[in-house]
Every structure is written in C-alpha cells, then in structure tokens.
C-alpha cells in the first residue's frame, strides 16, 4: 500500500531531523559532555567561605568549575572534589591562566563559612567554598537544572542530602561549556579543561 512506503521513509527522516536538532546543541569535540547552548551563563550571588559576598563577576577571567555538595557528604563529594583537584592540577600544568573550582554547599544549616574553608583547603588552593540561604540555593540550582533535597534526620540529628553529582564547567566569559559526570575520567576532564581554558 502507498501509505506503507510513505511510513518507511518518514520515520528515519523524522528521527534524523530531531537528531540534528539535538546534535546542534552541546557542542562537539568534548571528551566529557559538551553543554554549549543547553544551559545559561554563570550567574549567582553567594556568601563565600571568608564570609564575604561572592558573585559570578568575581570569577570572570578564568574558567570555573561549579559543584553543588555538602561537607558532611560521605562519598560523592569527597570523590568528586579529589577528581576535580587532580584534573585541574593536570590541566593547569601547561596553562598560563588560572582554573578555579567553586564548591557550593546546599546544606547551609550545617556548613558555616569556617567549616567550608577548612573543607576546601583540604583539596586544593584552587577550590573556593560558598553557600547561601536555601531559597537562593533553590534559584541557583534550578538555573542549572539541578536540585537538592534533605532526608529524615537520624537519632544523632544527622541527615542525608540528595544533590547533583555533576560538575559544571564555565569558560572565562561565564558561558556554560561542559558537564563532568561521575563516569568521566580525570584524563578526559583535564583535556576538556585545557581546551576550555585555551578558548
């Protein structure tokens, strides 16, 4: 029947068209996940680990890796911070410019600026800690399509926090460029950091 022959070509054409639409986003050539055009520019207003206000403008001029976590985090955060510290170390060796990492705590109830400063110092000098009120953090995480939630406290008052496990990489102008997932290797992260730092 004629409609069957039409059906045979219409679907591949449709899938191809949609794939092209999707393929146009994200950017190519990244060893991690390219996110050009998928996420908005870096913009925020936080309180840094020194207790001073910190905005995205303060971080312009060098690529910035943003991670949302909390210092009581037992596994995901320390692993992620160790990985990004290693990747920035590896990428930074051949670079003239700087690379910076922003650790945004989504647990302002427990993470004071002092606690954040102690935590980030442990990993690397490149890492800065910051946090804000829960409402401000909601706005910020929502902008990057991330979220966080709190579990029920146990008898010691400890509670779990669900949060994004990704690292968002912005270039020196604050444009979203790549997303590092837990499955990405340190080598791939370092290669993409170098690429983003070079322009």
């Amino acid at each position: 029947m004629p409609e069957h022959s039409v059906g045979r070509w219409i679907r591949p054409v449709l899938v191809l068209a949609l794939a092209l639409v999707l393929g146009a986003c994200g950017g190519s050539g990244y060893q991690t996940k390219g996110i050009e055009g998928l996420l908005p520019d870096l913009a925020f207003r936080l309180t840094s680990e020194t207790g001073e206000p910190l905005t995205a403008e303060d971080l312009r001029g060098a690529p910035t890796v943003v991670f949302f976590g909390f210092t009581h985090c037992p596994d995901v955060c320390p692993t992620a911070m160790a990985r990004i510290a290693a990747a920035t170390e590896a990428a930074g060796e051949d670079l003239d410019g700087d690379l910076q990492v922003l650790f945004v705590s989504v647990d302002p109830g427990r993470d004071t600026p002092q606690r954040l400063a102690d935590y980030t110092d442990f990993f690397s000098d490149r890492v800065t800690g910051a946090t804000a009120s829960v409402e401000q953090l909601r706005e910020l995480t929502k902008r990057y399509r991330a979220t966080f939630g709190y579990g029920e406290p146990n008898e010691f008052g400890d509670y779990n926090v669900s949060h994004s496990s990704a690292m968002y990489v912005f270039d020196a102008r604050g444009q979203a460029r790549a997303l590092f997932r837990p499955s990405d290797s340190v080598t791939a992260m370092a290669a993409d950091l170098r690429r983003i730092a070079e322009g």
């Binding site: 409609e3 039409v6 219409i10 449709l14 899938v15 999707l22 998928l38």
Partner: peptide, 30 residues
Amino acid sequence: QQPFIAGVLFVGVIYFWLTPEIHFDAMLSI
C-alpha cells in the same frame, strides 16, 4: 494519521525520548 505511520510515531516518540543520550539533553535543557 495513516494507521501504520500513527502507530510507528506513537511508539517512536516514546523510544526516541528514552534513548539515554537524548533523554540526558532533554532533561538538561529547559
């Protein structure tokens, strides 16, 4: 609305958006 095309489209969009890489981008970009 030819039955064959309608059926393929109906199942096709489910499969398409549940392809892990495509799903990733769709949930990341508003």
